[in-house]
């Protein structure tokens, strides 16, 4: 087995950067959303939950199509890109991050929401009767008790972003070092009949996926530890 082409490492690095940034953004955006979904009594919250869950059901190409329109020169994405003198967010790393955040959102919001719901009202009531403000109760009781949910959310969000393909192809295309992530690179190698490289990448992804699933099992086992 000879040395891998440097372009593979470029794709690996880009993929990790994209997944890490997406996961971080999703934890920041998804936590308040999950908190609201878990605790609000608003009648329309399930509608919001359904919108968040859409990428689970929609073909990635549909999501990709709308994103392409939204990120393009005549959409809001083009408007934003205008601030730094570009015409579009499509076919850029930034556009890919936006797409990934939307695409992986349900995989982050759902576990956090479930974890908050599992924590329930009681620990927060206890905290309130111990003079903890709602903010203190959130940070010192709800978040620590929901920690397994956050771990699951981070692992799933990261893994799902690594594995996305359809959306990337629609809005990112195939620009090396900018938008060419692993899943697209494999597709390319196959198109170019470079079976060895495709094989290595595909095998690597299998190992990665296995690791993720094992990690999830471990988290869930820890989640089931006896509580009070």
């Amino acid at each position: 087995m000879g040395a891998l082409a440097p372009e593979i490492w470029v794709a690996v690095r880009l993929t990790i950067e994209l997944a890490a940034l997406t996961t971080l953004l999703l934890l920041v955006l998804g936590t308040p959303l999950a908190w609201w979904l878990a605790r609000s009594g608003a009648w329309w919250k399930e509608l919001v939950a359904a919108v968040v869950a859409l990428p689970l059901v929609l073909p990635p190409t549909v999501l990709g199509f709308y994103l392409l329109v939204a990120l393009g020169p005549s959409g809001p994405g083009g408007l934003i890109a205008g601030f730094w003198g570009e015409r579009t967010l499509a076919f850029t790393f930034e556009g890919l991050v936006i797409g990934s955040v939307l695409y992986s959102m349900p995989f982050v919001v759902q576990p956090i929401r479930n974890a908050f719901e599992a924590v329930g009202e009681r620990p927060l009531e206890v905290a309130a009767t111990l003079r903890a403000s709602p903010a203190r109760a959130f940070w010192t009781v709800a978040v620590p008790l929901a920690r397994p949910g956050f771990l699951t959310a981070a692992v799933l969000g990261f893994a799902h972003t690594v594995g996305e393909f359809g959306v990337v192809l629609m809005i990112g295309g195939n620009i090396p070092g900018e938008t060419k992530v692993l899943s697209v690179a494999i597709y390319d190698y196959v198109e170019l009949m470079q079976w060895r490289e495709a094989n290595i990448l595909a095998g690597g992804m299998v190992v990665f996926a296995l690791t993720v699933i094992l990690a999830m099992t471990m988290i869930e086992r820890r989640m089931a530890r006896p509580g009070a």
């Binding site: 009681r122 008790l145 920690r147 509580g227 009070a228």
Partner: peptide
């Protein structure tokens, strides 16, 4: 409370 409801963490 009726159940002790200690903070498990």
């Amino acid at each position: 409370f009726q159940e002790a409801s200690l903070f498990a963490h």
